[in-house]
Design a protein around this nucleic acid. Sequence first.
DNA 1: GCTTGACTTAAACCTTTGTTTAAGTCCGAG
DNA 2: CTCGGACTTAAACAAAGGTTTAAGTCAAGC
Lengths: 150, 150
Amino acid sequence: MPDQGTITKELTIGELSERSGVPASALRFYERQGLIRSRRTTGNQRRYHRTTLRRVAFIRATQSAGMPLSCIGYVLGMLPHDAEPTREFWVGVSEYWKQEVNARIAKMERMRDRFTECIGCGCLSFEQCLLVNPGDVLAEQGPGPRLLES
Amino acid sequence: MPDQGTITKELTIGELSERSGVPASALRFYERQGLIRSRRTTGNQRRYHRTTLRRVAFIRATQSAGMPLSCIGYVLGMLPHDAEPTREFWVGVSEYWKQEVNARIAKMERMRDRFTECIGCGCLSFEQCLLVNPGDVLAEQGPGPRLLES
DNA sequence: GCTTGACTTAAACCTTTGTTTAAGTCCGAG
DNA sequence: CTCGGACTTAAACAAAGGTTTAAGTCAAGC
């Protein structure tokens, strides 16, 4: 008796919500934004593919690290909605994501170090350092096209 | 002829805006939020103390590193509005700020590493890793009392 | 058949971080 | 004294990322 049921079972929005810990309202919102997708039953209820749980986990995890949904949407756009992603897909996504995260980390480290430096050197003319090196503007939305928000 | 003028000169909102690169509308907003402060002339115009430039630089710098204004407000609350801050003040603020930033950096690194691990190990059952270790919720607003937003 | 709980929608509302607009005031130059 | 530019305010709008509400539908159990 192989776990056939487990493999093919679809999730209701309530189940997806419970398992992911994400409110149903947020899931509907993500769906409106095109981040996840669902089939509809004859009674118009949503049924989610099992892999949607992974997408949702990805959304919340990356979001909690400061990624905007638009950027997350770009990355998710590389993954198939209704099938297990291939390893190659994941590797590609992972590469992209690592670069994004590393850029953000690097920026914060620069900020921290500059701050420390300004205090440490005793000059305290902090605004000079910050205003003279203003740039450091991270590519706020990621390199992808603006997929969302029409 | 010592640079008395330079020392004591107050800034109009236009001057502060130009020197800091921050739109006047944002400066008024920061003032409404209590992040900066101004004196009013008899004609009801704002005049900013020279040190306000430093506060504004601090706001933009830390904000661009992902700090919410509420958290920035907490830190700025430790600094005097209308006088040069002492070195001790800056050191204290710096400590606090470094901890905040380090926490954020650490979190992003954990995310990145977990992600890499999930891909690297070949299991691809990514949602397990993420959902099983959901926490990692940074104290989003900082430890301070909710100074702003009444 | 009726009730109950899970689901559906659209629309209103919320917080954050501002910008824009409209209408008016102040100040210095000519 | 008048003109223009810099300033003032309150209020509306914006965009991201949702939540709440109202009103209705669907499916299962008694």
